[in-house]
Each structure stands twice: as C-alpha cells, then as structure tokens.
Design a protein around this nucleic acid. Structure first.
Lengths: 331, 331
DNA sequence: AATTAAAATGAAAACGTTTACATTGCGCTT
DNA sequence: AAGCGCAATGTAAACGTTTTCATTTTAATT
C-alpha cells in the first residue's frame, strides 16, 4: 500500500505538507501543491481511512453505523436505502447491523460499532430503554433513532405519526361501511405497535363502534405471525369483515391466509395494511395501505446525524413525518 | 476510551502481556492472566478494531465489504442477509455498498473499501471485466463474486445455474400448453440476463417452438421496465399467452400491468418469474417462480471468503447452486 | 551448585495519519 | 541593517494495537 510517506518522498517534502494539501489545511505554496498533487496522482495514492480514524477523533472519518431490527422487512430496507444514499453523498460508508429483534445480537453489534470508532449511529433499538445505547449516547456518540425512540433521554428521533396513520386507516374502513374490524399487531413491546393500537381504538371510539378484545391479536411482527393470527380471526364464530394489519410482513402473511381460503377481497374480507411497498399495486387486488415515507426517514436521519456530529450541543429534535393512506382496492 | 495501556497499568504488567492474553498468543502465567482478565472486566475494556486493523495486515480485523447492485431487489436483500448472518457468526462487521447499477458509484465504493482496509470483499460487479476490481483482486484482496463472475481472471464465484433455471421455467410453460411465450429480460450486459435468455431459447428449440424476436424485450432490471415492457408485449397484434420474467422486480412490474388491464392469470396470460420471494404465495394468484437460494448464496460466499483469507493460495472455486421451480397457480 | 533450556515478561518499533510546535526564509518597516 | 511578521515547511508525538527482540525469571538437568 502506498502511504503518505511515499508521496512525500516522491514530491521531496515532508508528510506534514502532504497532509496539508490533502486537507486544505494551513498554507502551502502553490508550486509545491501541484508537485504533491502530481505525486499523488502518479502513485495512485489513497489515504487510509483507518489511520485517519485512529489518529483523530476531531476529524470526521466518514463511517456510520446502522442498527436495524429486520432487514427482511421492506420498510427497513427502504430506510436503509435512504441512509445509504445520503451517507454516500457525504462520502461516508456504513456498517450495516441487522439484529433481527435479538437483543443479544444487538448488544454485540453495539460493541463492535464502538470498537470501530464510528462517527455516528442510526438505530432502531429493540427496547426504548436500551441501557447500552443510552450509555454510548451519554458517552458522546452521536446517535439518531429511527422508527423508535429512547425513553428518558435526549436524542434525535425520526419517525412517523403512528397513531394518526392507524386512525386514518381504521376510520377509512369504518366510513367504507365495515363494522367488525380486526387489528393484527406486531410485537407488543415495540412502541409503534402500541401507538397503532391506540389509533385503532380511537377510530372505533370516535365512530361509536364498541371495542371488542377478541378482534385484536398481538404477534411477533413477522410473516408467519400474520398467517397464523389471520387464521385465528377468520375462525372466530363471528369473524371480522375487515382487517387492519400492523406492518408489512403481517399484511403479506394475512394475504396468504386469505388467498388460501379462496376468500374474495374486499367482498369477503377487506384489508388495509400499515406500510406501503412499491409493489403494493402489483398485488391483486392492489393493496390499500398506510404509507410511511421510509426512504425519507433514512435521509432525514442522516441529515440530523451529520448536524449532530458538527454540533454536539445542538438541542435534540423529534421529527415526525406524515403518513399517507394509499387508497387502492383492497378496502 | 479505555485502552490496553489502562488495562496494563491496572494489572501492573506491560501492554505486550495484555495483548498476549487477548489473542491467546504466546505463553503467559496463569496468575497474571486472571489478573489481566479482571482488569479488562473492571475497566470494561474493548480492544480497538481500528488500531488492530492499522497495525497488522497479518491478523484478521473482522471487517468485510459487500458490494451489491440494487438493494431494492429482494434477491440481493436475501443474499445480504445470508452474508450478514454468517459474517456476524464470524465476529465480523460488514460495510454495505449499494451501487445501484451506477459504475461510477461502484468505483468510488471500491476506493472506500480499499482505504478501509477490509479483510475481504463479496461483490456482484456491474461488469464482468471491471478493471478496478480485477486490480484489487490481483493486489491480493480476497474477493468472492456472487451472482456474476469476472472474466479472464481467477476468482471464487457463487451463483446459480441461470440457463437451466430459465430452461425449466419455459419448458414447464410449454408442457402446460402455452405456445407464445415472451421473455422480459433485464440489463443485457448482465451475464445472468443472457444466460436466462439462452435457457429460454433452448427450451423453445427443444420443444420445436419457433423463436420469435418480437417476444423478447430487454430492459433495465427494474420495476418500471417490467410495467412498460409487459405493456408493449400485450399490445402486440398477436400477444403472448405466457410471459417469463427475468427477475423479481420485472415480475412485479408485469403483474401491475396485468392487473391494471383486468386480465386474468393464468387464463388470459400466464406468468412465471425468475426469483422467488417469501411472499410469492401471498400474491393472487400465488406466483410460479424460479427460486434461487439467495440466502445460501450469501452464506456460501462468506464461507469461501473466510477460506480464501486463511489460504490465499487455495485454487479458485466456482460454486453453482441449483434453482427450484416453485409451481403455484400463475402458470 | 552450575549450566541450560524454557517460560514469562518487557521495551520499543511499526502501522499511516493529524497536529502542535519549531524552524526557516522572505519581504517589510523603521 | 536590524527587527518583525508571516508564509512555508519540517520534526516529532500521538492514536491503540501487534510483534520482534531482548531480558528476566523459573524449572530442569547434570
């Protein structure tokens, strides 16, 4: 590997001067600057990010960590895409950590990220009171949370108004004439699950529809749980006429069950899902869904992270983006 | 940050000894070992991967690069998941580089990866003769290619038998009675596109069905191109009775077009897609598709990469995994 | 008890940067 | 012509490891 030393030798200067032209830092004579630039080009020199990172905390080394719960979920893929794109525009690479809702794995990934000396972290933590993440935050690591926040601690957060998103979906179902509306929720310990439940209940209440406990099922936010819980609902003595599904994967699971039973959507059973996908209109019938601006969530998170890195004292922001109900034909 | 120096001081030894116990390297007295381990625990010491990486090329620093063309494509997400999982089991982090079929971005990401001093790289390069990737490979960087190889150069590759996969799909369509079978391909410069075309043609030939140029459309491997090209096919004076779609995203685009036109699958038009998805059976009708073991591709690639890192002289392997035709109801 | 081998440890260099500090040289002012 | 200020450059320490080499301690052999 060709190092600054090689460049310095070739250009007949000291490494300090090379460093100066590389970072546009301090004064350097125009003649020597071009000499050095030529040497850099000739040798195809590339600075080592590793050495830079080791040497100075004060200068950004362009490496972010991304900690997400489940890369199988298209929502997080879109968030990740937004993060990646903006990070790249900022000349930064990302270490992707997918912890699959496994807290132990999450913890180990946090260890790794710390020891990689990342500039900052974008995380959707498993728990709102994740002690390790809190510790790292207090230790000065720039952190932005997405989709979920951290309790009792100041941190930048980018998320969506989950309650209102759910409210609008369920309200729409009611206004469309559905009476028995079920909710298939994700993991109960995830804040968004509870907020979406709240929106569901509020919509029922506001429209004078009694809440019925048997119509709400909590699962694990995954595909199979959508399959299973949808089955349970349809097997009810008095089954629902519409289902509101708590996320992407649950929706797909529920659809599988519905199709298997040869039920017609929306005649036999209507469905509105939380989370839209770019191929929702490829479904048959095209899916009515609550769209989260996932890509934008990722982008905004990186923006906030960069700001935070530049100004660690800046007061924290909670950025709440709007959802949009994409009305198609499944309800 | 607490360093080896702090540990050494606390334990009353030199950093060399601390390093020795950390790496189980060289002899160290049992008593001092426990003393040091205690100090590590007390101080919550975590070794800096950055320093380790800077210091020694000879010891693995547990960082891999992953270079993929399109994270919106669920196939690559699954590959990525396989890579991530196995890398994690190997205590390694991954830098995820999504170049979105943009060669300039790919090049810059390769620069970054080099300057991050990764241990190895898993890549699905944009071009089979990518000069920079070849150069890095020759420079000694351990590389494993997935989905696509590199021409004229020895490198480990993990992929699928694209020709046979396509052949089986089209053969199945023919055996099911379809006569006019179209193929919507991805980017023509991607090897898999051409190999799938070959399988398509071979199946036609073997079954004595004449090849008709108007039934093959090349696009850009993305969703919109599936929408558009499917439209063009259906607008043909003599439209096809079945479509074989060249990847995931194209399939979804084609489905969107078909649903929009209120055509019935498979009565009006049958469809078989290359690439299965875990939610293919949630589609209506459930999609018949050629399944690539994407997750396994990722896993195998990491295995090969680790072997290559341990033994740079090992001769190269091309690992070809089998596809499976998932017969559902769309054809 | 003397010699030797092996085990245990430490000192210091090296990895490739940044950066504080020191030094040089040059053009001004007086 | 001495002094000053500033631009231009260099020297060397530091970041946190690994690793070579040297040194000390311990144990084993005679």
């Amino acid at each position: 590997m060709v190092s600054m030393n090689d460049v310095a030798k070739k250009a007949g200067v000291s490494i300090a001067t090379v460093s100066r032209v590389l970072n546009n830092n301090g004064n350097v004579n125009e003649a020597t600057r071009v000499k050095i630039l030529k040497a850099i080009k000739d040798l195809k020199y590339q600075p080592s990010r590793v050495a830079k990172r080791l040497r100075s905390k004060s200068v950004s080394s362009n490496l972010f960590g991304v900690l997400i719960p489940d890369i199988e979920n298209p929502f997080y893929v879109d968030v990740l895409r937004g993060i990646e794109e903006l990070a790249y525009n900022n000349n930064s690479a990302i270490i992707m950590c997918n912890f699959g809702q496994d807290e132990k794995k999450e913890k180990l990934y946090l260890d790794i990220l710390q020891s990689e000396a990342i500039d900052g972290l974008i995380a959707a933590p498993a728990r709102e009171d994740d002690p390790q993440l809190k510790r790292m935050l207090k230790g000065g690591l720039p952190v932005v949370c997405v989709d979920r926040g951290l309790r009792d601690v100041d941190v930048d957060v980018v998320l969506v108004d989950n309650r209102t998103g759910a409210f609008n979906a369920v309200d729409y179902l009611i206004k469309s004439g559905y009476k028995r509306i079920a909710y298939i929720a994700g993991l109960p310990e995830i804040p968004s699950s509870r907020l979406r439940e709240l929106g569901y209940k509020d919509a029922l209440a506001e429209n004078g529809i009694p809440f019925s406990k048997e119509l709400v099922k909590f699962g694990n936010s995954k595909h199979e749980s959508g399959i299973k819980l949808c089955s349970e609902l349809l097997d009810l003595p008095n089954p629902p006429d519409a289902i509101f599904t708590g996320n992407n994967l649950i929706t797909l699971g529920a659809l599988e069950t519905i199709h298997n039973r040869k039920l017609k959507i929306p005649e036999d059973i209507a469905i509105v899902g939380f989370d839209d996908m770019y191929w929702s209109s490829s479904l048959n019938p095209p899916l009515t869904a609550v769209r989260q601006p996932a890509y934008e969530i990722g982008k905004r998170a990186v923006e906030l992270l960069i700001q935070r890195i530049q100004d660690p004292e800046r007061s924290c922001i909670q950025m709440t983006l709007n959802t949009e109900l994409m009305k198609r034909s499944s309800a």
